[in-house]
Design a protein around this nucleic acid. Structure first.
Lengths: 224, 224
DNA sequence: CTCTGTTGGAGAGTACTACTCTCCAAGCTG
DNA sequence: CAGCTTGGAGAGTAGTACTCTCCAACAGAG
């Protein structure tokens, strides 16, 4: 199919598709002539994936590019490639050793992970992310307690079991990986939304009374 | 304290503090003379909160402004103000009625929420977010199953119980709200990080073998 | 009372991201 | 062969979050 059909079928403007091609977010179509290239269903599929990550999961293009590059890397086993992709997906805050809040948070992280005994890669960006969040709570004067962390870890592990259960190792590798990554990112959004909904339920149970958001903004209205 | 001390104590450049003052992210100090204003501990505290939301939770300034405005709104009960703040915090994707993927996702959402019977506000942006994520999965040809959704909802509810348990209704209102909001945002980051760590553990258990990310990027290296 | 430095306030400028627009010659289509 | 589309490349734009520059009005040191 030509670029205009790719655009029509995906709903993405031609100019944007050209931009993605330039930025290596979409592989080039097979050149039929100097001014004509052929795009396949795989292109359409990848384009939809990019759009889902951009629009729904709000992943920066640079990170999407890194993830796709990891997926295209052949010759690694499923677990390794998945790990690499998830690494590339996450923001990696820089360590701030020496900062007292950071160091205390790093200890909290180490203690929690030692207790959980999860099989994880040492330098994982997720670990730095966790430390960063705990350091921020420290700085706000409300450090997380070990009991809280254990509870959140249990919830996270439950979600992760569901994530991994969705992976079909029998499916074609490319497809399985693509789904695993997109599912991980989209389920992160879903989990966040579900958590906010659940917060309302729990808060209603605890503090009771009227429905909130009565004077909240109209649906679809971005603040300012 | 003067602006320079506020800057020194918070680690935020004076220029940025001035910018936040202009942008209504920080209330003005009490004017002592034409060219001198006095900032309190409350200013320092709010500044730290803004920085935590910007740096760690990556919340856009416009949304932080909306949240702070909601918190400053007096005369509402705790549950209501909290709900309003959480509303202001979340992105609100626009509905796309008519789009088949969207409509199916909206049905899924309605079915799940009916089954869960959580006490939630009808127009909640979190609901639209959930629908959006489910619609994206639909579009990628891998719709979420009701069983999966139930599982994720259970995990989310568990996290939400921990969130709400942290709120101390006896604490000064302003303080309780500030902590609730920052905790919600920072714990979202922590939960995401924990989930990624747990994914690695579960994936290792299921697909076994070598440590992943061996050729992942160095810690602290942003892709491209 | 002068001199040095800081402050609040406002505007312009910058860096980055994610497009979006314009142009062009080559090429396919009626 | 006229008129549309296409691939490719560069320039332009909109939005976000600062960052810099300037200035007159002070404040404190000597």
């Amino acid at each position: 199919m030509r670029i205009s059909e790719l655009s029509r079928r995906s709903g993405v403007p031609v100019a944007t598709i050209k931009y993605y091609l330039r930025e290596d977010l979409l592989p080039k179509g097979e050149a039929v002539s100097t001014t004509q290239a052929d795009y396949s269903e795989a292109h359409l599929h990848r384009l939809r994936l990019v759009r889902a990550l951009v629009e729904v999961a709000e992943v920066p293009l640079a990170r999407i590019r890194a993830v796709l590059a990891a997926l295209d890397d052949p010759g690694l086993d499923l677990h390794t490639v998945l790990g690499t992709a998830i690494f590339a997906m996450s923001p990696a805050p820089e360590d701030r050793p020496g900062d007292p809040d950071w160091d205390r948070a790093a200890d909290q992280t180490a203690e929690l992970l030692a207790e959980l005994a999860w099989r994880i890669t040492p330098g994982s960006p997720a670990r730095a992310q966790l430390t960063q969040a705990l350091a921020a709570m420290q700085a706000l004067g409300r450090p997380a307690t070990p009991e809280m962390l254990r509870g959140y870890a249990a919830a996270a592990h439950q979600a992760a079991r569901l994530d991994v259960a969705c992976i079909d190792p029998e499916a074609p590798r490319e497809e399985a990986l693509l789904y695993a990554v997109s599912l991980s990112a989209l389920m992160e959004q879903s989990l966040g939304a579900l958590r906010r909904l659940a917060q309302e339920d729990v808060s209603a149970a605890r503090f009771g009374a009227a429905a909130p958001g009565a004077q909240g903004r109209e649906p679809g209205t971005e603040p300012r």
